[in-house]
Simulated scan of single mutants.
Amino acid sequence: MKHKLISGLILMAVLAACSSSDKNEKEIPAEKTVQVNADEVQLSAAQVKNAGIVVGQPETKSMHNTINVNGVVDVPPENTYSVSVPMGGYIKKMMLIPGMMVKKGAVLAIVEDQQYIQLQQDYLTAKNRLKFASADYIRQKGLNQTKATSDKIFQQTESDFNNQKVLVKSLAEKLRLIDINPNVLNEDNISRSIRIYAPISGYVTKVNTNAGKYVNSSDILFELISPGALHANLTIFEKDAVNLKVGQKIVCSTSANPDKKYLAKIHLITPSIEDDRTTSVHCDLENADSKLLPGTFLNASIAVSNALVETAPEDAIVKWENKYYVFTDLGNYHYKMIPVETGASLDGFTEIKTKNKLGSIVTKNAYAILMKMKNSGEE
């Protein structure tokens, strides 16, 4: 009986020890991330090892710096033609609509007016008078040489002859302005109408008149553009303009078709800065097509010359709430999140534009730290 009592006591002691051991195991807290400050975090060695976090130094690398800018498709002034009529008149006929392609020399419109008749009449009359003035001049010259007439009469005849030559010449030029050839004009082909011809081969962009309308010489009837003369007009900030030079290559795209790349070359940089601290850069488009219309919005990328910049691996940079950060190593698995401004990227590295030296940073699996930092309050 005594032996059984001792055995029972021993069994109870063992069970009590086991129960106490289980209780102690349950009371050991799980390893947690320690949030030091809003932008700092303390990890354990095990957490760093499991997350594969690697610490290193920013690297100085030579890379192309890319400037991203906006602009529009434009036409140089020398390739934009405004068509008007040198003398007013009524539009008798026209069949143009914006977007039409016309060839150089094509008839754009027919204009008629009585002043065209009057001008042709004046020219032919002046031309006939010139014949008489010429004959009279020759006659008076001969008489003056034999002193059969006074010098005064000869001088008057000579003046009338010269004035008539000037009048005929000026009337002939007026006829040429309205595309009437004075050399073939005679009393049998006087016309009340004139034709307006296309000065270039190109697209009609504007039509400002219609049949039956009276137009003045100052009115712009049509506008044409040369199809091969489109260029890109880009807006560049002051800080970026100093890095550009004539001849640099540019890659452009439109919002409607971003996959289509248009190549351009800088032709002219406006040598002045506007009030908004920008300037205009004019670029020749090398592969423009019919889908690229004047006024189309452009996105452009300009690669400037190589520069030695401080970089970090792309895996070292994290994005949080639309801002970029890196984690600096404060020692003993203590990390601080630092905001940075990023630049160009090349071969897995991104330029860091932060003025202050960063020192040791997390170069791999930085997002693991970000997740542990932002979720530490939930553990």
Rank of each mutant, 00 (worst) to 15 (best):
Y335Q: 05
L358R: 13
S345H: 02
T328P: 02
Y333T: 01
I361Q: 07
I338M: 11
I352R: 03
E341A: 06
K357E: 07
P339G: 03
F349P: 00
T350C: 13
D347E: 13
F349E: 00
I338E: 13
T350W: 02
E341P: 00
K336L: 04
T350N: 00
N356G: 00
K336N: 11
P339L: 12
G359K: 12
S360A: 11
V340G: 01
I361E: 07
S360L: 11
I352F: 07
D329H: 12
V340N: 06
M337H: 09
S345T: 14
K336E: 13
I338F: 02
T328S: 14
V362I: 13
I361S: 11
L358V: 12
E341C: 01
K355F: 01
G343C: 10
T350F: 00
E351C: 10
E341R: 13
T342M: 04
M337L: 15
G331D: 04
T328V: 14
N356T: 13
T350S: 13
N332R: 06
E351P: 04
N332C: 06
N356H: 10
F349W: 05
L358M: 09
K336Q: 14
V340W: 03
L346F: 08
D347F: 11
N356I: 05
I361K: 10
A344S: 15
T342P: 01
V340K: 13
K355E: 13
V340I: 15
T354F: 02
L346Y: 05
T342I: 15
I352P: 02
S345Q: 07
T342V: 15
D347P: 05
G359F: 07
G359Y: 05
S360N: 15
T342H: 01
G343L: 08
I352A: 07
N356R: 14
Y333W: 07
D329P: 02
H334M: 08
Y333E: 05
L346R: 09
S360K: 14
L358D: 05
Y333V: 00
N332P: 00
T354Q: 10
L358K: 11
G359C: 09
L358F: 09
S360I: 00
L358Y: 05
G343Q: 05
S360D: 15
I352T: 03
A344N: 10
G343I: 08
Y333P: 00
D347L: 14
I352Y: 07
I352V: 14
H334K: 10
T354L: 12
T354G: 00
D347S: 14
Y335F: 15
N356K: 15
K353V: 08
V362K: 13
K353Y: 10
D329V: 05
G348D: 01
I338Q: 13
G348W: 06
I338H: 06
T328N: 04
T350M: 12
L346H: 12
I352D: 01
G359L: 06
D329K: 10
A344H: 03
S345V: 15
V362S: 14
Y335L: 07
Y333C: 02
D329S: 14
L346M: 11
T328C: 03
N356E: 13
K357A: 09
Y335M: 06
V340E: 11
T342N: 02
S345C: 10
T350R: 04
P339M: 12
M337G: 08
